[in-house]
Amino acid sequence: MPATLEQLTGAFTEQFARLREWLEPLGDTLGGAAQLPSSRTGWSNRELVVEIGASVQSLLNAEPAPAGTTPLSLAEYTGHDSDFDAELTQRVREQAAGLTQGVLEYLEEMHTRATANLLALGDDEDSVVLGALGPIRLGDLVRTRLLDLVTYTLDLEASAAGRMDLSAGNTPVHVPALRLVADELLDIVASRGGYHLEVVDARMWTRLATGREPYNTLALTSAIQPTDTAGGVPDLGRVLPLI
């Protein structure tokens, strides 16, 4: 069952708060690792944090669509081409290089302003707004921002592995938000294939579904399972990654 706008917004707020709390003691140098390569190939840790701010900024820039505007589906909205990806990458890198304020201050500012705009857009998840890629339902726009926020936070977590203590209580990931995102991603698969599946490892499933973890059936069967014990986990190699 897809999450409601209230659930999505709550998870977004809680995930951001957890990330900000985790980043605070590291400071703008990110514990001396700002310029080091992140787990995301070709990106530094600083650029990755700035990308989170740029993703949040999409909520800040959203505005009500003219009456009668037909929204794009979630799949249509997220199915942008590689040219847009390249443009976005270049823009984020330029923004990271030219940022005049501290990276954590920038992140906080984007979140504060985006939250204010989200409140102004109202609480009707079916209302149509103009996002960065076109018209979309408000609920779906917040869904895309939460998915990005959790995914990039997982990237930061992976970047810190072996360099920081990531034992229980010291992860940037807000587990309930991760679980919600994992369930949303599984809903996409289930709706396309008619499968009856459930998440057993939210972190692994999200990494597989977003291309952070190379696809293999062992990882897949450790991450999801059939709701019917007599069933099996389908081979999803042709549909992953979803994002």
Rank of each mutant, 00 (worst) to 15 (best):
D85H: 05
A190P: 00
G31Q: 02
V103R: 09
I224K: 01
E109Y: 08
L236G: 01
S222V: 09
L23Y: 01
E21V: 03
A114K: 06
L30D: 06
L147R: 13
A96F: 07
A219R: 14
T171G: 11
P25K: 05
L197W: 05
L154G: 13
Q15R: 09
G42H: 05
D201V: 09
T151L: 00
Y77E: 04
R40N: 09
T171F: 02
P66M: 02
V49G: 06
S58W: 05
E51V: 00
R93S: 06
E47A: 10
L218I: 15
R238N: 10
A158S: 15
V239T: 14
L99A: 04
N45I: 01
H111I: 08
E63I: 02
A177P: 05
L5E: 00
T210C: 02
L119K: 13
N45T: 03
L48T: 15
A67D: 08
L185P: 01
L36D: 13
D123N: 13
P2L: 05
E47Y: 01
L60F: 05
D235R: 01
P25D: 04
L141G: 07
N170A: 12
W205P: 01
T41C: 00
G211E: 01
V50S: 06
T210N: 04
E6T: 14
A182S: 12
S167R: 15
T78H: 00
L107M: 10
D155Y: 07
T229N: 08
T153R: 03
L141C: 05
N45H: 05
T221C: 05
S159M: 10
E94Y: 02
M110D: 12
L26N: 00
T9Q: 12
V200G: 00
T229P: 13
R91P: 00
L19T: 07
T70A: 13
E47N: 03
S55I: 00
T41V: 07
G79K: 08
T41M: 01
D155P: 13
E51S: 08
V92F: 13
D140L: 10
D165N: 15
R192L: 11
L107E: 09
